[in-house]
Design a protein around this nucleic acid. Structure first.
Lengths: 151, 151
DNA sequence: ATAAGATAGTTACATATGAAACTATATTCC
DNA sequence: GGAATATAGTTTCATATGTAACTATCTTAT
C-alpha cells in the first residue's frame, strides 16, 4: 500500500503562479480596455513598436512572445483603428514594416506611464531587496522554462 | 517636452510573469492531456476533490480560483467520463456533493506524482534558498494581488 | 530558367472562455 | 402563508484562441 503523495493546490507552485499572474493580467487588461479599448495582444504590439518602429510582424512576434496569428490579428485590429501605419518592404513583397501612427503614438505615450504605474503598484508590497530577488528568480525561471516549453 | 518614460517589454514584470506562467501551464497541460485527456480546470477539480471529497461545486470553485461556470463545465465533463460521483444534499435540493469515483481516484493517484514531478523539475534551477524566497514572494504577491483583482 | 522548398502573413475551423440570462430551490420578511 | 430576495448550478450567446490550411512571395539548387 504505497500512499499517494499529498498535493495541496494552494501549495502547488504552478497553480499559485497561474492564480497570481491571471489576477495581474486581468487587472491590467481591464485598465487598458477601459481607457483605450486595447487588448493585451494589441498592447504588446504597441509596446514593441513604440520602442522599435519599422519591425515586421514576424519580428514583433519574436519580441512579444506571441505567435504570428496573434500578431496578425492584433495588427489587423490596430490598423483598422488607424493606430498603426504599414509600409511595404523595399525588396521583399511578403514583408510589411509596422510603426505607430500619430494616434498610436499618442496611446503609447499615455499607456506606458499607466503600465509602469500598475507595475509599481503591484510591486509595492515588496521592498527593494525583494524586488531584486524577484527579478533574479524570474530571469532564472524564464530561461529554464524556455526548455520546458516545446517550440 | 516631457518625454515618454521608457518601457522595455522584457523588463516589464507583468509581461515576464505572463510569459513564464504560460510556458509552465502549457507544458503541464500538455502532459495532463496526453496522459489522461484531462484539462487544467478538470485537473483542478480532481485535485480539490481528491483532498476534500464531498464538496459542493461552489466550494470547489472557492478552493480552485475558478468561477462557477468553469467548475460546472469541468464537473460535467468529468461526470460524463465517470471520473466523479455526485450525491444529492440531504436537505438542500440545489446542492450536489462531489467526489472522485474509483476511476477518478485512480487518475488522482497517478496525476499527483506527475504534477509534483513537474513542479520539481520546474524548480530544479533554484537552490533551496531561492525556492524559499520564491515561496515567500509568491505569498506576498498573491495576497496583494487579491486586492488588485476586482471581484 | 525553373522546380522544390522555405518564409511572411492571412484565413478558416473547431474549441475554449466569460458574461449574462435562466432554472430551480431556499430563505427572509411582512 | 406568500411575495421578494438570495443562492446553486446550468445554459446560451458572443467573442477569443489555437491549429492547420492556405496564398503569395522569395530562395536555393540544379
Amino acid at each position: 500500500m504505497s500512499a499517494t503523495p499529498k498535493l495541496n493546490l494552494d501549495r502547488f507552485t504552478p497553480y499559485r503562479l497561474s492564480v497570481m499572474t491571471n489576477r495581474v493580467s486581468s487587472a491590467i487588461a481591464q485598465h487598458y480596455d477601459e481607457r483605450f479599448n486595447l487588448s493585451i495582444p494589441e498592447w504588446r504590439v504597441i509596446a514593441v513598436l513604440g520602442q522599435s518602429p519599422g519591425l515586421s510582424a514576424r519580428q514583433v512576434a519574436e519580441r512579444s512572445a506571441m505567435d504570428k496569428v496573434q500578431v496578425s490579428r492584433a495588427v489587423a485590429s490596430l490598423l483598422a483603428a488607424r493606430r498603426l501605419r504599414k509600409e511595404a518592404h523595399a525588396s521583399d513583397g511578403r514583408v510589411v514594416h509596422l510603426s505607430l501612427s500619430a494616434k498610436g503614438q499618442a496611446i503609447y505615450d499615455e499607456v506606458v506611464p499607466l503600465a509602469l504605474g500598475l507595475e509599481k503598484r503591484f510591486l509595492s508590497v515588496l521592498n527593494q531587496q525583494e524586488r531584486k530577488a524577484l527579478d533574479r528568480l524570474l530571469s532564472k525561471l524564464l530561461s529554464s522554462s524556455d526548455q520546458l516549453w516545446h517550440p
